[in-house]
Design a protein around this nucleic acid. Structure first.
Lengths: 203, 203
DNA sequence: TTCGAATTTGACTAATCAGTCAATTTCCCG
DNA sequence: CGGGAAATTGACTGATTAGTCAAATTCGAA
């Protein structure tokens, strides 16, 4: 049975959406409360500050994403196929959001992290933590691909970090330019970056 | 003779520094005026809005950086050496700033662009424009390197974009994690990404 | 030196900001 | 049903926000 959403859930959901859409600084507590249909008094009953809400919002979002990522990055899937699936999934998600709000939003961790990292220690720490966990998926992919002789990457950690920087950079550029096409070749570019043989073009 | 700085110059300089250091949203016009020793009335005599100032600040900074970039990316320098010099220069700059303010700040265009791109069209357009110009340097490097047989990159534009995404992503990660070491291997990683033979390790 | 333009000043909005709080309502458990 | 905890409310504060403006000052050229 579909349990009705709680005020706390509505707040974290609205917060993530609005902060991602606009920015941390441009999103006021009042606006979040309006969107979530919650009075400000209630807000401060659940959260002790705006930053506290942002941390909770990231945590809730990560918890929800995890299951999907675990499916995509399942060890039963061939390593490079995991990456293809991941990019496909991410692009579809960004496409859907673009249709909703008209903008390419990139990665919320990147956008928010870059904005608040010099202002709020707790928020930065949470973002750092989640980014590290995401990196772990890449690491295991590359380790497996190397073990199976699909690519040459004796230092999986380093290679994963490079790939991670590239993909995160691509997401940021797509956001800044509001252009999803910048991400169209992200999978073949990844294969190239990893030194994997390009898949045969279907004809 | 060292001309004394004008109020307008002090404003753009302070604006860039403070916005880069903190963020666009967290930097108030009052704070910028204080830093620049200019009264707010004067501010609005020179600029019609905070966003207008930010555009002017980016433009002034770009104008100042251009000469240095033209030197680093001079066609008389071997292509891959240009990249090495560029990373060296960037790292030294970030190191110096870190010593000043204790934080790794990454790329101002990236940080600011990611924050304001959904809020302010003029600012976004200016950032897009400057990013495109920076990309041009990479393009010419890669075109030259390809022509000289140092790398294989028939599509210089695409390769430059990939490299650009990687380096920008690296800068953002370094900012978020406040860790300059993430940039330590950026040149060898770039060579690897370009498929250039690694330089012999000195012993 | 004089005059008009460029610049500087500080006091002033009106809106918005994050955050507080006592009083009230709703909820669940015994 | 009763009572205590959990949740909700709306009015409130004091600080900060971007932006305005008329008056005063400085500057440069004739």
């Amino acid at each position: 049975m579909p349990r009705t959403s709680t005020a706390k859930e509505r707040l974290t959901e609205a917060a993530l959406k609005m902060i991602w859409r606009h920015s941390y600084g441009a999103t006021s507590v009042d606006a979040i409360c309006d969107q979530a249909k919650v009075k400000k008094g209630s807000f401060y009953y659940f959260f002790k500050s705006k930053c506290d809400l942002a941390v909770a919002a990231l945590e809730a979002d990560w918890k929800a994403q995890r299951a999907q990522l675990d499916t995509i990055f399942s060890p039963t899937v061939p390593p490079l196929e995991r990456l293809r699936l991941y990019f496909e999934f991410s692009l579809e998600h960004l496409q859907k959001i673009k249709e909703e709000c008209g903008a390419v939003l990139g990665c919320p961790l990147n956008a928010l992290g870059s904005e608040v990292c010099t202002q709020d220690t707790a928020l930065r720490a949470k973002i750092h933590e989640i980014l590290d966990r995401k990196l772990t998926y890449f690491e295991s992919v590359i380790r497996d691909a190397h073990a199976q002789g699909l690519i040459v990457a004796p230092d999986a950690k380093a290679k994963a970090r490079t790939l991670f920087m590239f993909t995160q950079g691509a997401l940021t550029q797509a956001r800044i330019q509001n252009n999803l096409e910048l991400l169209a070749d992200i999978y073949p570019c990844t294969l190239d970056l990893l030194g994997a043989p390009a898949p045969e073009p279907s004809r």
